[in-house]
Computed example of a mutant assay.
Amino acid sequence: MRIVLYLATNIAILFLLTIVIKLFGLDAASHRNLTSLLIMAAVVGMGGSFISLALSKWMAKRATGARVITQPQNEAEQWLYSTVQRQAQAAGIGMPEVAIYDGPEMNAFATGMSKNKALVAVSVGLLHNMDRRQVEAVLAHEISHVANGDMVTMGLIQGVLNTFVVFLARIIGSLVDSFLRGNRDEGGSGIGYFVTVMVAQVVLGLFASMIVMWFSRLREFRADAGAAGLEGKGAMISALQRLAAGHGDNSLPKEVAAFGISGHWGKLFSSHPPIEDRIAALQRLA
């Protein structure tokens, strides 16, 4: 969720900002001046990334239908809330919102704009199919993501990549527009410029996503190590083994790819490393 949904929101916002820029003619001069273009690209790129980050909790709740626990209604919810509270204190972060969402899959995610205003959510399937020691390890993994500032760091990386995507897309658009015009001087940019910019943003955005996913895979190993520190290496390994055993029955929708679930787009577009690699990394920990 925190990766795939964030990327989808980021792409949508970039498209919206591109249309707004075109409608108001804000890039009419900037695409002919590299300095102005770079400044505009940075504003759009970083702005789009952090708008996506600011919306991440709201989008996650909407996508999953997660119900935030404001007042625990039973012993299981009280245990879940207390576990997150204990781990958050141990990790030195503010108490996150704790939520449960319906779904048979074993899954959990954490998202939010800052360490002290995060959201940690678990599926009903996770609570029903893992023992409490394993669930504690999964929660510790998500808490470690929050404590490590992964979403903010992701926002910075995505913002820099967005900047280059916006910048290069307009350079390519200008070249194509100039080629289509030939020797004609019609003033302003033509439809070829706008269409090329939109297509180039998609293509370049895919390459940028590969970089983001590579970074995400690295952070998963660090979150696993953090969970091992909070709840024990054995508990984290046990949780991953249980997740691997139930992977064949996982009907998780694409937009909610989270804890330990490899993407369907191959290794380059997977937000998580293979579970066996994660277990091997944990076994090497002192």
Rank of each mutant, 00 (worst) to 15 (best):
L168W: 10
S251D: 15
Q134G: 01
R170A: 00
F24N: 05
F207N: 01
T18H: 12
A147T: 05
E276P: 05
A54K: 02
H264W: 10
I19T: 10
I171W: 05
L218N: 14
N162E: 03
L161M: 12
I39S: 03
V98Q: 07
K254A: 09
A169G: 05
Q241M: 10
Q78C: 02
T9P: 00
P273C: 11
V256D: 02
V138D: 03
L7V: 12
A257V: 03
S251L: 12
A41L: 04
F269K: 08
L127Y: 05
S174D: 07
E142K: 00
F15A: 15
V166L: 06
S82E: 14
S49I: 02
L17D: 07
I275N: 04
M236A: 06
V197I: 06
D27H: 14
S114L: 13
R181K: 08
A245M: 07
S114K: 10
V152I: 15
A244Y: 04
R181C: 00
W79D: 06
F167K: 04
S56A: 15
L156G: 14
R133V: 07
M213I: 01
S36W: 11
I171V: 13
I21W: 04
S123W: 02
V135N: 01
Q73K: 14
A280H: 06
V256A: 08
F259K: 02
G192S: 11
I261R: 04
L34S: 13
R219A: 09
Q89C: 02
Y6T: 11
L156H: 07
V98N: 06
Q73L: 10
L23T: 05
V98K: 08
N10D: 13
V84R: 08
M130Q: 04
I211P: 00
T153W: 10
T35H: 03
A12K: 12
R62T: 09
A28L: 06
N116K: 12
G112M: 10
D27L: 06
H272V: 05
A227S: 15
S144K: 04
V68G: 06
W265V: 06
M198C: 13
R284N: 07
K267C: 02
K233M: 08
V256S: 06
K267G: 03
R67I: 14
E276K: 15
T64F: 00
V43L: 13
M130H: 00
L156K: 09
N129G: 10
I3W: 08
P274H: 07
R284M: 07
L55D: 06
V4I: 12
H31V: 11
A223L: 09
Q71K: 12
A63M: 06
V202E: 09
W265Y: 15
G125W: 03
D277H: 13
D131S: 02
A118T: 08
L80V: 12
S251H: 15
K117I: 05
S251A: 14
F215N: 10
R86N: 14
S189E: 09
E75S: 15
Q134S: 08
